[in-house]
Design a binder for these strands. Sequence first.
DNA 1: CTTGACCTTACACCTTGCTATAAGGTATAG
DNA 2: CTATACCTTATAGCAAGGTGTAAGGTCAAG
Lengths: 154, 154
Amino acid sequence: MKIGELARQIGISAQAVRFYERAGLLHEPERTPSGYRVYSAAELKRVRFIRKAKELGFSLTEIGDILRMHDAGQVPCAQVMAIAERHLRETDAEIKRLRRFRAELSSALGRWKRTPARAVTGNAICELIERTIDDNHWKPGRGAAKHARGNGRA
Amino acid sequence: MKIGELARQIGISAQAVRFYERAGLLHEPERTPSGYRVYSAAELKRVRFIRKAKELGFSLTEIGDILRMHDAGQVPCAQVMAIAERHLRETDAEIKRLRRFRAELSSALGRWKRTPARAVTGNAICELIERTIDDNHWKPGRGAAKHARGNGRA
DNA sequence: CTTGACCTTACACCTTGCTATAAGGTATAG
DNA sequence: CTATACCTTATAGCAAGGTGTAAGGTCAAG
């Protein structure tokens, strides 16, 4: 199977497959005499594994670690569980953060609607925004969202 | 006031201030004879506005639009409200997405714990992951998380 | 007159996971 | 023989919001 066929079966682009190879997730594949990459069913499964792990929120780095453990003859399931549990905690934290943010934004919007910006003081840029945090009941913790990250599900 | 003093008062780096200038959020400042940027209280307020808007989830592009409206003599508050309402909807969608993801991850973890990977079939990479989506009760919608992104609160 | 804190510019780099493009070689159908 | 679909490599670029570094100029204190 050549790269385009593999990519089609998984539902990704051929470039993405080459990208995984360069990223160290796939071994150097065999080649036809003319240099085309040739993949076996095992490689197909490996790529499928990569996509599944990605959908579960694993980063390519983590997936690479897992695959290298596997290649070294180890069973990486303990690591997989640990990473998944960390992702769960991070997701919880991110949901909490987003909920706090949502509440704050919603409350600002409510105040803006009750007190429209007819009372624009001449030297404000947008008085709505300017009075919002001057109220200062909302102290965003230092670095609250430092590690926040989309979890990469495509 | 020079750039370092301005940055210190806002709590950002001097590079960030120059970055805002290059991004078109700040006007070309006055300069000392030796070329140092000199800022007035009005510029300080403008930078403070930028940070406040950013904390409310506005992107630098949006903030730039708002500031340009202001510079053109308009009152950008209607746009600000519209953007804020869009952010609210996006935040809601992102929270929903994360909750679905969390439920899925949590359920996978539960299954993994109940049925540990002692039954490792020889040709799997990590059987935990491999059996998870083969169950296939979980169809991630196409492009569900296309626009998902941390909302830039620092 | 030197040290050190501050300022200047320009450019590269970071994160992640790819996508796009250029410039070319290969395989197959008609 | 040619059209076209596929493959190769290398390189650049995106999103977003900056940070880091190099190489140098300026200013006050001691």
